[in-house]
Computed example of a mutant assay.
Amino acid sequence: MNHIDKGAAIREVRWQAHQNSNSEAPENTMTSIQYAWDLGGIPEIDIRQTADGIIVGFHDATPKRTTTAPEAYQDTDISELTYAQLHQWDAGVKFGQRFQGEKVPALEQVLVLLANHPEREVYLDYKQVDLTKLAELLHRYKVEEQIIFAHNDHENCKTIKRLVPEIRTMLWIPGRVPETTVQKVASVRETGFDSLDIIQLHLVDAEEKGTWRYRLERSFVQETYQQLKDAGLELEVLPYGFDRDDLFDLLHMGIRRYAIDEPKVFTNTLQLYANS
């Protein structure tokens, strides 16, 4: 194996704080966003639009799981609620008592911070918004180059790229059925990776763990990484589980972009890699 400058490798790593399964802060809140920035990562915000047209950070279609919405509203679609209604409910206390008082943020709150900190970035994971309205908002705050737009529909990535040429786009591809993942990557490659900057592969644990932990074959991940690199794109991986050796293996492969559910565990393991 060629010598690897581990310090340089760590400095090259970029990581996304994956929101809806983040185990260290309440998802899609200003606290979780700042937490990721403070650790040196890039927060992800799931974006939906309220009945009165406000784009908010929210993963689920309804407020039931993550907020203190009254029973009468728990199964109401976010698109049928006004921002004022959504904002009155607590979005942190279900995660932990010390987060009581957290509110569902409007995307504009985050963009104001981005505009004042050009070194920061944010992933926007598309759930349900008007892309034209989103584009107008990004242009208004002049943060286009600080945004990574993420979705699993290639057409939406193409659309936002036309509306906001400066934006980076990431197509995420599930990994539970390897054959489907392989076909999806091949299909996107046939387009010349049209309008894409990053492809994210989900690394789901294999039913039987061997020297390689995941369902997607190691050779496929390595080949995809090289194809994207040759095309001037990046590979991002979302390992749903990892230990020290798994992460070291991915880093040795050259992968420098990750999506992570446990940011502190990840950054601690990166430090182990640097010191090993």
Score class of each variant (00 low, 15 high):
K161A: 07
E108T: 14
A274G: 15
K6Y: 12
A206V: 09
K6T: 06
L270G: 02
C157F: 02
N28P: 01
Q222E: 15
M1G: 13
Q222S: 14
Q109G: 01
T31P: 00
T50W: 02
T50N: 04
L216C: 01
I45P: 00
D130H: 11
D77W: 11
D52L: 11
H18D: 00
L216Y: 09
K6C: 02
E136Y: 03
P63K: 09
S21C: 11
T267N: 08
Q200H: 05
L134F: 06
Y73T: 00
G210L: 09
G7V: 02
L235P: 05
R14I: 04
N2L: 13
A106E: 02
T82I: 08
N275V: 12
Q227S: 14
I33H: 04
V164P: 03
N152A: 11
H202E: 15
Q100S: 12
Y273S: 03
M253E: 13
L238G: 04
E145Y: 05
Y258C: 04
Q49H: 11
Q85C: 05
V177D: 08
P178L: 07
T67K: 07
P118Y: 03
H151Q: 13
M253A: 10
K94V: 04
K103L: 06
W15F: 10
V104L: 05
A106R: 11
N152Q: 09
L163V: 04
K6N: 02
I199L: 13
Q34E: 11
E166S: 11
R14N: 11
Q200L: 11
T269E: 14
K184I: 07
Y83D: 02
D230H: 14
G96P: 06
Q271T: 12
N28S: 07
E71S: 14
A9F: 04
Q226G: 01
A69T: 03
A9G: 03
D249M: 10
I198H: 07
H252S: 12
S79G: 09
V122K: 05
G92P: 09
Q49R: 12
G53W: 13
V221I: 10
L247C: 06
A17S: 14
Q100M: 14
Q85F: 10
P43Y: 07
L250F: 08
I54Q: 12
L113H: 07
L251I: 01
T67W: 08
L86H: 08
V237H: 04
N2T: 14
T76L: 12
T68C: 06
R256K: 12
F220E: 02
T191Q: 09
E144Y: 00
V93Y: 01
L138W: 05
E44F: 03
D90P: 03
F99A: 06
I33D: 00
L163W: 05
G175I: 03
T180P: 00
T132G: 08
Q222M: 13
I160S: 00
I147T: 01
V56G: 07
K103R: 15
G101D: 06
G232E: 06
L138R: 03
E144M: 01
L111T: 05
H151D: 15
L113P: 00
E136F: 00
D197M: 05
Q19F: 04
